[in-house]
Design a protein around this nucleic acid. Structure first.
Length: 948
RNA sequence: GGGGACUUAGCUCAGUUGGUUAGAGCAUCUCGUUUACACCGAGAGGGUCGGGGGUUCGAGUCCCUCAGUCCCCACCA
């Protein structure tokens, strides 16, 4: 069989994903014999498309779930979608507008028909894209927040919370999105600092109201600084600080609103800061939260001059402004004020302005309106407590602080939205101002008969829908039908879930509220661990977003580098809890010209990270090709040997028992490291561990050790051990790169139909064993712990020797093909007994003579040497070495050692160090001193002999 | 304004209770097309650990301070 030299993921990935689906590998059902491991996906927007954030987030979830599945747990990853009320509605409104249809011209039913049509057409694309990534979700469990049974859950919860007195209806100041024409929660407002202006406006004092005898007042007017001059028309008072001497004489007077004949009083309140602006504040209760509170305190009227779409209504009292947008009016009124001599001056000013999260160009208006609210104080208590006491663990735990701060200052949640796409609020009204909350119209009628027997006529349901997050916060419960049937087998088995993987940007929107719902409705936490991924940024440090056009297309990336390549590429640089910079080139701005210029000289899909991921895949692929070639090569019959073991074949050239024992020990150490990383959610570190294990230890060292000469056979035992290692290596790699590992695993040995590496057992760490006697024939004994540590130490010495010899050749410009002789002088020869053949093979050493040349320094032969710890090495060379080069090298090393010795001597000569440091530290310093002294002595001798 | 974090090689980051003269990957440079892999192999160079001060026998690590970057919360018009 011919195996391609480079791995081609394109065909392979689709093939195996289909195989996994066909064989129901990802399907899960409660199995009391197994421990459940559950993840619910953060449901992406139903009409959303995959972006880099999803890639990272879902890769991490997939790694966790695949590993758990291989560890024999009942792994269940529930996928699904969010109806994304405001985001989807905004998209459909825009789509209709393009088609020339105005939402206002449609009935609710007509509009919703369009949304459902849109959802059918574009919905769920993201789930298909997740399959490309390799996400091992149980697709049979796919849920949608607007499907019937989840909608029922929402209604049930609403009615329940209303009956408990936690949901209420009230007039309050809310954040109003004039584009979406809906209320928003505090969390849906994004503040941006913008350059604006501070306008100093003159308000004329009404003379009739001036105090008698004081007509010659020096202040016929009061100047007020404002950033929003258009709201002058909604002012209901001017407020100054009572202690402000400048305005004492104006207390209680009236001023005239410019361009109107409306008069408002000058009131006093200590709330006003004297040293900001002019020390005077215009009070606009309808359009500013603080003014609203101030207005309530002083019983001021509320004059709302804005329509729902942000245009001015006729309450503004100036006909020419009526019907115009607030920003247009701002420009106009500034001109008018100036013309009227009422604008004293204008100053540049930076201030924070709230924008709608979903309509990012839309400035949010504070607006008083009648909305539904959810009381948060009681819900927050257990949710806060159990994060602080680590019942629910945050990774990284710095997010606990953020969480605590929000929970301690939580405001009631404004849950109603003036939209159509979403869960309609289950409240019914009669025409007389009465209402009831009920699961459906029939129940509502019943309630009316009991509560309002006098009520007559038709009832109608609330027109508004609920905030998207009001269904999302139920997700870990509702996906298992925990509301519909609280005692069903699924919810009892899978809940609480194990791990939530999400971005820190939705910690308040979603995570905090899920915790609340968990305790409120199941009296238990919804997940044990929350892993917050970083946010993906571009090379300029900007968050990747559609608006900026700075995100590479994930599907194209996967087509170029393979899903496995992109997965590993992303994770190579994913510090736990920190943002990650993705390295594809991006245009500096999203202006068409910039993009065009950018594309002329840049490849937007070029990514060193993904390349590294792809190269890693290829490396594994080629290890496979090598091992496979051995399998197919002729193997000799089992080699007879003493004691049930085997003798190394000449073609292998090394003591295979040493190679095998060493890699076994190395593998065990890596497994322990992996376990540690995973337990701390250090996923990127875990990848680095398997990367090093596979590339360096397995490919560069182990395979090179046992590799027979070209065309020569390998012994059956070594092949079996190697194939066994490779199999286990593939298993630890599989969660990170599912496709390539499946492809190789399937070809490595004949497999049964339906068999898959996805459900192959994850390698377990062996219990530590005592050092096995190093007798031939016992090499297969499992080895770790003390025995493992010893062999790992011997190996690292041997590897250092190999590196030094390679380096020496390199420095002398010698070909690797020239075999060298190696003389060793050492107090402990054991490492050379076991690893001597390894050194010979990998460094191309013809013979090692250990403690065999005590007088080698007096030998007349030319050569060169080096030191590792206390072992001295000498390589005799036929040809004369470049003496100058060699001297330079030795001198450099000598200088380093002298400096090193000085620093050690300084420490040991310090009485306080000897008195205070821990004994093992001092012992270590003494050893360092002895080593350095030995090295210096040897180096000096070498230099001397080189000169002589 | 309140809170949190970060600043280590050209770049992206490790450095877990303070203890060898600080590590990795990428990039750069040198050598090598040898027989799994040039999506490869063997090497090299590159850091006064943001600045300053302190604690300590000893500081990348702990404390203070200054500077810069970022995030969250609040929203004095």
């Amino acid at each position: 069989m011919e195996i391609a030299k480079t791995y081609d993921p394109t065909i392979v990935e689709a093939k195996w994903y289909q195989y996994w689906l066909d064989n129901q590998i990802f399907a899960s059902r409660p199995d009391p014999a197994k421990e459940p491991y559950t993840i619910v996906i953060p449901p992406p927007n139903v009409t959303g498309l995959l972006h880099m954030g999803h890639m990272l987030n879902n890769t991490i979830q997939d790694i966790l779930i695949r590993r758990a599945r291989m560890q024999g747990k009942e792994a269940c990853w529930v996928p699904g979608m969010d109806h994304a009320s405001i985001a989807t509605e905004a998209k459909v409104v825009a789509m209709l507008q393009e088609r020339g249809i105005d939402k206002k011209s449609l009935s609710r039913e007509e509009f919703l028909a369009y949304v459902w049509e849109w959802k059918e057409k574009y919905g769920g694309m993201i789930l298909k894209q997740l399959k490309k990534l390799g996400a091992s979700c149980d697709w049979d469990r796919t849920r949608f927040t607007m499907e019937d049974s989840l909608s029922e859950a929402v209604t049930k919860v609403f009615v329940d919370l209303y009956n408990k007195g936690k949901i209420y209806r009230a007039y309050r100041m809310v954040n109003w999105d004039p584009k979406g024409k809906t209320a928003l929660s505090d969390e849906e407002v994004v503040y941006k600092e913008v350059q604006s202006k501070l306008y100093y406006v003159r308000y004329r004092i009404v003379p009739e109201n001036s105090i008698p005898g004081n007509e010659q007042t020096p202040h016929p007017e009061i100047v007020i600084a404002t950033t929003r001059p258009e709201t002058i028309l909604a002012d209901t008072a001017i407020c100054v600080n009572p202690n402000d001497e400048r305005y004492r004489h104006l207390h209680g007077k009236m001023v005239v609103i410019p361009f109107t004949d409306r008069q408002i009083p000058i009131i006093t309140d200590e709330y006003v800061t004297m040293d900001f602006g002019t020390g005077g504040l215009k009070v606009t209760p309808a359009h500013d939260l603080n003014d609203y509170e101030l207005g309530k305190k002083h019983n001021l009227p509320v004059i709302d001059i804005l329509n729902d779409d942000g245009t001015l209504n006729d309450k503004c009292g100036v006909p020419k402004y009526t019907g115009k947008d607030r920003f247009a009016v701002r420009r106009e009124i500034v001109k008018d004020l100036e013309a009227a001599g009422l604008l004293e001056k204008t100053e540049e000013y930076r201030s924070n302005v709230g924008y709608s999260e979903r309509n990012p160009d839309t400035v949010v208006e504070p607006k008083v309106s009648l909305q539904w609210w959810l009381k948060m104080d009681e819900l927050a208590k257990p949710a806060l407590e159990h994060v602080l006491d680590d019942t629910i663990r945050f990774h990284p735990d710095k997010f606990k602080n953020m969480y605590r701060h929000w929970m301690e200052n939580v405001h009631d949640w404004s849950i109603s939205r003036q939209l159509w796409w979403g869960h309609r609020i289950p409240a019914w009204y009669d025409g007389q101002g009465n209402f009831v909350v009920a699961a459906n119209q029939e129940e509502a009628l019943g309630k009316f008969q009991v509560q309002y027997p006098e009520s007559t006529g038709e009832i109608h349901q609330d027109e508004d829908v609920l905030d998207t997050w009001f269904s999302a916060w139920l997700w870990p419960i509702s996906v298992f039908d925990g509301f519909k049937d609280p005692e069903n087998a699924d919810i009892k088995y899978y809940y609480p879930t194990n791990t939530l993987v999400t971005g820190p940007d939705i910690i308040f929107f979603w995570v905090a509220r899920m915790v609340m719902a968990g305790y409120e409705f199941r009296h238990e936490f919804p997940f044990r661990d929350v892993y917050f991924t970083g946010i993906i940024r571009d090379q300029y440090g900007r968050k990747m977003s559609k608006q900026l056009g700075n995100s590479p297309d994930p599907i194209s990336l996967m087509e170029r580098y393979g899903a496995d390549g992109v997965r590993t590429g992303l994770l190579f640089s994913s510090p736990a809890g920190n943002d990650l910079i993705f390295d594809t080139p991006v245009p500096k701005s999203n202006k068409p010209d910039d993009i065009a210029n950018f594309l002329k000289t840049n490849d937007p899909l070029e990514s060193k990270l993904c390349e590294q991921g792809r190269n890693f895949n290829n490396k594994i692929w080629n290890a496979f090709r090598l091992i496979k070639s051995w399998q197919e090569a002729h193997q000799p019959p089992p080699t007879p040997s003493k004691g049930g073991g085997f003798a190394t074949l000449p073609s292998e050239g090394v003591r295979a028992d040493v190679a095998i024992r060493w890699f076994e020990a190395r593998f065990q150490a890596a497994l322990a490291e992996l376990e540690d990383h995973f337990s701390k959610f250090r996923i990127s570190d875990a990848l680095h561990t398997v990367y090093d294990l596979a590339w360096d230890d397995f490919c560069s060292w182990y395979l090179e050790m046992v590799k027979p000469e070209f065309g020569q056979p390998i012994s059956r035992e070594v092949y079996a051990a190697t194939a066994g290692f490779f199999d286990r290596l593939l298993r630890v790699l599989h969660p990170f790169m599912p496709f390539v590992t499946e492809e190789i695993w399937q070809s490595l040995e004949p497999r049964q139909p339906g068999e898959s590496i996805c459900v192959a057992e994850y390698p377990k760490a062996e219990a530590p064993l005592p050092t096995p006697p190093r007798k031939e024939g016992e090499f297969l004994a499992p080895l770790s712990g003390a025995g493992g540590a010893a062999i790992l130490e011997e190996a690292s010495l041997a590897f250092e020797v190999v590196r030094q010899i390679r380096n020496l050749r390199n420095g002398q410009g010698m070909s690797p093909k020239v075999a060298l002789e190696l003389l060793v002088s050492t107090p402990d020869a054991s490492a050379y007994e076991s690893f001597g053949s390894v050194i010979q093979k990998l460094a191309n050493v013809s013979a090692i003579r250990v403690n065999d040349a005590p007088d080698r320094k007096h030998e007349s032969r030319t050569g060169t040497g080096f030191l590792i710890k206390s072992d001295e090495f000498f390589v005799p060379l036929e040809t004369t070495v470049d003496a100058a080069k060699e001297r330079q090298r030795l001198q450099k090393e000598l200088d380093h050692q002298i400096g090193f010795l000085e620093s050690v001597d300084k420490k040991l000569g310090n009485e306080k160090f000897v008195a205070n440091a821990k004994p093992e530290i001092i012992e270590n310093e003494r050893r360092k001193k002895a080593d350095a002294e030995a090295k210096i002595k040897s180096l000096q001798e070498s230099l001397a002999s080189l000169c002589g």
